[in-house]
Design a protein around this nucleic acid. Sequence first.
DNA 1: AATTTTACTTGCATATTGCAAGACAAATAT
DNA 2: ATATTTGTCTTGCAATATGCAAGTAAAATT
Lengths: 149, 149
Amino acid sequence: MEENCNEKMRRSDCAVSMALDSVGDRWSLLILRDLMFTDKRSYGELQSSAEKIATNILATRLVALEKNQIIYKTPDPTDSRRSLYYLTEKGIDLLPVVTELMHWMSKHNPDASACTANTTAYKKDRVSLYKEMTKQLKKAHLQHGDLVK
Amino acid sequence: MEENCNEKMRRSDCAVSMALDSVGDRWSLLILRDLMFTDKRSYGELQSSAEKIATNILATRLVALEKNQIIYKTPDPTDSRRSLYYLTEKGIDLLPVVTELMHWMSKHNPDASACTANTTAYKKDRVSLYKEMTKQLKKAHLQHGDLVK
DNA sequence: AATTTTACTTGCATATTGCAAGACAAATAT
DNA sequence: ATATTTGTCTTGCAATATGCAAGTAAAATT
């Protein structure tokens, strides 16, 4: 009904601030982490992650991420109850942000579990790592033709 | 009084999740942005940024960031009412995260205003840019001897 | 036809954020 | 010396966001 109150106000024109308006909440980057580093694609799979996101929050975050064109959704061809969520190119471009967060925590807290496979490559040449992983993500996520540019 | 309820629960051991437990709120990374890219160091200066952070939120975020050893505070030697906030090495290490957020938004929304000086250097060789900026930040922030290791 | 699975929605409790005002010590002005 | 201003926060309360439990509805499975 009240369809016009959903506009989230932009706090400033600063790029960092605007980025955080899109993904600077408690959950969005965790959803993106799963789409980047696991093969979880459906609602139920995303809900099953270790952090136990509440179902209503997952729903609202997915809508917001889709609205911001960071992810898109398509019906699962093998089960029409399901939707599958994929990263757009814009979403894939957040890979360095998620990766830098991971390595920051990994460096400063030994308890943190990170993708150890990446750690070596990251330390050696992170830009090459990003390029390679981006290539892989594009294979996995951008196969839906005209849905994404 | 109730001093023991302040523990924020860790949602999981995932490095990304733990990083977001520290800086994944609506404001922390904006405060860090100011400490990284401007010479704002006092409470009042940080409050004066474009996003107009509420004074109580600024206070609680500064306490949390200090507790997590991302920033530290010292009394201003020229005005004993003032405290000055500085980045620790751990805080400086978040530079790539903030920078990647900035360039991501900058790439995907032309309205976003970014440090244009950095954009060129970033595109050319971001790792060198990080190294150089880290060096500069250490000059500006780690001059307080034994306060930080 | 009945049951189960999947993707949500709804209602309500709790936590976080936002806004305005106030407190208090130190600096400055008179 | 006294009064005013400045700077760093606190406090109270409203608005929003999150967390939890239960419920709905359609498609798949039995």
